[in-house]
Simulated scan of single mutants.
Amino acid sequence: MIRVARPLAISLVAVAALTACSNPNNNNDAGTGAAASAVPADKKLSIGFFGFAKANSFAQATWAGVQEYANANNAEATFLDSNFDGPTQVNQLQDAVTSKRYDVMIVQANDGTAVVNPVKQAVAAGITVVVEFTPIGGKYDTIEPQVPGTINIIDPPTVNGDGLAKMALEGCQTVTDGACKVAYFQGFANYPLDTARTEAAVNALKAGGASEVISNFVGGYTPDSGRGAMQNLLQAHPDVNVVIGSSQALQGATPLAAGKKITFVGNGGSQQAYDFVEKGTWYGTYAMPEKAQGAKAAELGIKKARGETVPEATDACSTLTDYACLGTKDKLAGKTADYSD
């Protein structure tokens, strides 16, 4: 996978709006959209942030970064809440394209395949589109644009899964001298992003020597759902050594491991996750500085809308951190979390 930024083409070719039956993996008919006229620096830009959900702390961190950069650079941002629902987000995007109410659209896709067509239509309409965090298209292992004309600042789910597995295998050595049994809590069942991440993590764990990998429990993204998953896990597998899950889920799961030789690997860079790692309760957490990524997405979008040349593909972890998001105790020492769960 290419993990370096490369410049956008200076000019974009105009195309007609694309039909809803387009193949999301076939870019041959996508073109690169109508060239948007550069917006003068003295005109306020309007940014639409299509985030996962307003109730989600991770999306709120992204939103804080978007807002902060927008407010400091003559732009106004709006959070469009899809509440983790793919069809709702598709409708929001379609409405935004029709109304042309936003100069810049920052998309944190719930379903990277479902939103392909409205994103193509936005590019064709001359709207600047920034793909943030989750790839848009049928591939979840690349930062490269799958919709030509978009700007992409991404952490591929497969890379995320590999990183979680790497830390879990290292964590095995802190709790057992022999065979290591690892449980992976899925975020949402049948959620495209989670499916790709889970598959990558499970494959890496097996290839790395885990004696058993358990991946049939859904931990979700709340302490309550994580607590329920941990209760079920301990009933079925009381000898588990390492548990991987979202940082929110593991906050509910961790107290149930008191007195047991179990360590955890979180997925998220919240203050709570940092504290667990600092205390040694968790071996590590996949710590994406999400507020910084939101700010970077806004920066790229605003600059592109004002006629500047910006990278079309940026690897978020290698660009925004010096530790590839693998937040073990030594790597997070002295660092401050972007947000609180």
Rank of each mutant, 00 (worst) to 15 (best):
Y140R: 09
A201F: 04
G280P: 01
K44R: 15
A253G: 11
N267I: 08
A9Y: 00
F50M: 15
T78E: 07
K261G: 08
S46I: 15
Y339P: 09
V129I: 01
L8Q: 14
V107A: 04
D338G: 15
G48L: 11
A114F: 07
T319D: 09
A298P: 00
E278S: 13
G208K: 12
E212V: 06
E312F: 04
D111N: 07
L256Y: 05
R227H: 10
D177M: 09
Y69P: 10
E278K: 15
A75I: 09
A64G: 14
A5C: 05
F217D: 00
G138Y: 09
V104K: 04
G284K: 01
L18D: 07
A168E: 11
D194H: 10
Y283E: 10
K260A: 10
G86I: 10
E199F: 11
K100F: 06
A253T: 12
K54P: 00
N73P: 12
E132C: 03
T150H: 03
G269I: 06
T309A: 01
T198W: 02
A189N: 13
S246D: 15
G266M: 03
F79A: 09
L45Q: 02
A196H: 07
L8H: 00
G187H: 03
I262A: 05
S246Q: 14
G137Y: 04
K181M: 06
L256W: 03
D338W: 07
Y274P: 05
Q108F: 12
S215Q: 04
A72P: 14
A17N: 12
A61S: 14
I244V: 09
Q271T: 13
A295F: 03
Q146M: 06
Q92Y: 13
T281K: 06
E132V: 02
G294C: 01
P311S: 05
A316L: 06
V159G: 10
Q173A: 11
L169E: 13
F84T: 15
Y191N: 13
Y102E: 03
F52M: 14
I2T: 12
M288V: 10
D239I: 03
G126C: 04
I153A: 04
A124L: 05
A204T: 13
C21T: 13
M1A: 14
A55S: 14
T32R: 00
A273L: 03
T198K: 03
A36F: 11
A75W: 05
N56E: 14
P7D: 06
Q235R: 13
L18M: 08
A17F: 09
V4W: 14
P289Y: 00
A324R: 12
L256P: 06
S270V: 08
V123G: 06
Q248I: 04
T336K: 12
A210Q: 05
A53G: 11
A55I: 12
N26V: 13
V218I: 12
D85P: 10
I302C: 01
V265S: 08
Q173D: 12
P148H: 07
A36V: 11
D95R: 12
G280V: 03
I143C: 04
Q146E: 08
G334T: 09
N232F: 12
V4H: 12
K261A: 11
W63A: 11
L93S: 07
